[in-house]
Design a protein around this nucleic acid. Structure first.
Lengths: 216, 216
DNA sequence: CTCACTGTTGAACGGTTGTATAGTAAAACG
DNA sequence: CGTTTTACTATACAACCGTTCAACAGTGAG
């Protein structure tokens, strides 16, 4: 028997290696949380809030079903963490511009370059909006985040509006721009044949310059 | 025994009446479908797509659980019927204006008077958008409906733009206006403290007049 | 190497999901 | 008034939901 074992074919060795390999990876809680959030976003993108199930998420993340409760407490808490993660990156994007955009073109380009303004994230945003509107804790956080976001846009508008000698309420214009971008993006996501990304950008630029010029 | 029965107290008569009353109402299929659609919209508004369950809907409509399958075939078919019902009313609203709006104010007022642009319908729209983006049959129908909607808005814009002697691509302006309204409405729904309805209307009017004036 | 810590697993739970179906009864018809 | 039609109810079903929890095992400390 012992001799036979020593002549074991290679595939048996592979099987033994596989059997002896660790059954799971043990990583730092923060890293695991990040992976679960990433997997959740993938699930949300694929199936909307209906695809946002413990089974789906853990399968996507390659873990067992118990981990969500262990690391987040509940599925709802996970959704809140997803919101924080996504909005954090959105704010990063507008804050990252070391220099404030110097022209309308640059500003529009900055807003649209956001990676979360991609069609695959439509379902993610729909789910988040629905949750924010209902969840008071998220609503408070959203209010702060939105204010920060608009602050950045308004500052850029105010900067190059002053440069051109026009006088506008930069917060009003920022609100218009943000809403217009959201609306255009939404329609473009729902049916891409209605509107291309380039045309959406073009409409933004034209609207923005009209609003800035029209009010001397 | 017979004598005893003739002296039955009044509450017993009530109980007999109640027991003899029809156990359910038998109405025309179209009417029943309309009621189920109405109940579904209520459920969607209350709990989003998560509240859109057979149990919820039938309880809201006061029927048993079998009726959705019987009248619509499946729950998804019901959602499609809901879309058709809502978008039909939206189109009615813009078509109802016998006279095309003669000013920017009138146009903005016409768009915002739509009963479905109420905050309680946020969850309904979020659910519908998510479904349209995923369901090919709905997407085809939506493309036609959106085209009709934009056609109405564009015609109005073109009419009083010509009256003022300015020359614009009325479809571009209509797209801008619709997107802006959608975006402003969305932000206002998500957090009402950020934006009031009156301010949203005001921003619309100012944007629209700027776009129309700026291009001679 | 051994031990303790804790990240991770996986089964089990009560409850809910959408749909199919057999049977009931309301209402129209002759 | 009896008959027929079919809108409607009510149960059953398998699949799936989020959460709990006891046991397991990877990993670093000693």
């Amino acid at each position: 028997m012992r001799a036979r074992a020593s002549r074991a074919p290679l595939f048996q060795i592979d099987m033994i290696k596989k059997a002896m390999a660790p059954k799971f990876e043990r990583i730092a809680p923060d890293e695991r949380r990040a992976r679960l959030i990433e997997a959740s976003i993938t699930c949300l993108a694929k199936g909307g809030i209906q695809g946002f199930t413990v089974d789906n998420i853990c399968h996507e993340a390659g873990t067992s079903r118990g981990l969500i409760t262990h690391h987040f407490g509940s599925k709802n808490a996970l959704l809140a963490a997803i919101y924080a993660s996504i909005y954090g990156k959105v704010l990063e994007n507008v804050a990252r511009s070391e220099m404030t955009p110097q022209s309308i073109d640059e500003l529009v380009e900055m807003i649209f370059r956001d990676s979360f303004l991609s069609r695959e994230y439509l379902n993610v945003w729909l789910a988040l909006w629905g949750e924010i509107a209902v969840n008071p804790a998220l609503q408070v956080e959203h209010r702060k985040n939105y204010a920060l976001y608009r602050e950045h846009i308004a500052r850029a508008i105010s900067a190059f509006a002053r440069g051109k000698g026009v006088k506008v309420d930069s917060y009003d214009v920022a609100t218009i721009l943000i809403s217009l971008v959201d609306g255009l993006w939404l329609e473009q996501c729902i049916d891409q044949s209605l509107l291309s990304l380039d045309r959406a950008k073009d409409l933004c630029r034209r609207t923005l310059s009209a609003v800035l010029m029209g009010s001397t």
